[in-house]
């Protein structure tokens, strides 16, 4: 059931993307988008039922979760994202869902939870991080739009774009901090050690320091801000994927 639903989800997102690119009616695209989200939600439920826990514990599950959160932002707060920029968000969602479809089967296998993971804190720590990632993905998209449009910083459109980017960075910064603090509390409850300099923890700190830099610019020029957001996004991608595959640590399962 899981795999067919995942393929249906990916196809529906692809159809929505094609409709968006051809400039067809907005409502029709939104309808397809909602159908994709429902299929996506069904996929998450199926996975949770078969795994016996929410989809928080490995790359496959978190890719599905993160893409779902971004897609949900696209339809629930659709006025925030202009029509002509929605394809970028949808492209990001499709990339993640596509990656989930083509992941090797060994990475899709359900693994039983280790005792330390069987905790109430998992339900706060993991979603907090993925809310943060979702916000930073949107900030990254706004930063790209700004850099490629190359418009005057004082124009109303750019001011609005930068304001949106700034809001997303704030959301990301807050949720990454919530993730870090709740992770520390969880680790303290499990191992008595809230901070172990594990590579994932260190890179999570690097994400926060990078965004901290964003808020402490001497002359907060828009271009500089957009470049820092892109850099922060790259550090997040490395934290999420790079650390898991390249460096071993207590978060290697994630």
């Amino acid at each position: 059931m899981e795999q067919p639903l995942l393929i249906i989800t990916a196809l529906l997102y692809l159809i929505a993307f094609i409709i968006l690119m051809t400039g067809a009616r907005n409502r029709f695209c939104l309808g397809i988008n909602w159908m994709a989200i429902l299929a996506h939600f069904g996929e998450l439920i199926c996975r949770s039922v078969s795994a016996g826990h929410p989809p928080f514990t490995n790359l496959y599950e978190t890719l599905l979760l993160l893409s779902f959160l971004v897609a949900l932002r696209l339809v629930l707060w659709r006025r925030q994202i202009e029509n002509r920029h929605r394809w970028l968000v949808l492209l990001m969602v499709m990339t993640m869902v596509g990656a989930a479809v083509f992941l090797p089967p060994s990475l899709k296998v359900v693994h039983p939870l280790m005792p330390a993971l069987n905790s109430f804190w998992m339900y706060i720590h993991v979603p907090a991080y993925f809310f943060g990632y979702m916000a930073l993905i949107l900030a990254f998209i706004y930063a790209l739009i700004f850099l490629f449009q190359g418009k005057n910083e004082s124009s109303a459109e750019v001011v609005s774009l930068l304001k949106k980017m700034n809001n997303e960075v704030k959301i990301a910064f807050l949720f990454l901090n919530i993730g870090l603090v709740t992770g520390a509390i969880w680790a303290y409850k499990s191992w008595g050690n809230y901070w172990d300099w594990d590579p994932k923890e260190v890179w999570a700190l690097i994400n926060i320091l990078t965004l901290g830099f964003y808020f402490h610019l001497v002359k907060p020029k828009a271009t500089k801000k957009a470049l820092i957001v892109i850099l922060a996004f790259l550090t997040i991608v490395f934290t999420y994927l790079g650390v898991s595959f390249l460096i071993s640590g207590i978060h290697s399962y994630a």
Binding site: V202, W203, I206, T210, G212, F213, V218, I247, S248
Partner: peptide, 22 residues
Amino acid sequence: FQVLTVLLIVALAVSTFVAPEA
């Protein structure tokens, strides 16, 4: 703050690769 943050980011990032267990 900026200089210290950049130094910390670079040192922390490099240290995750060159630590003995890496």
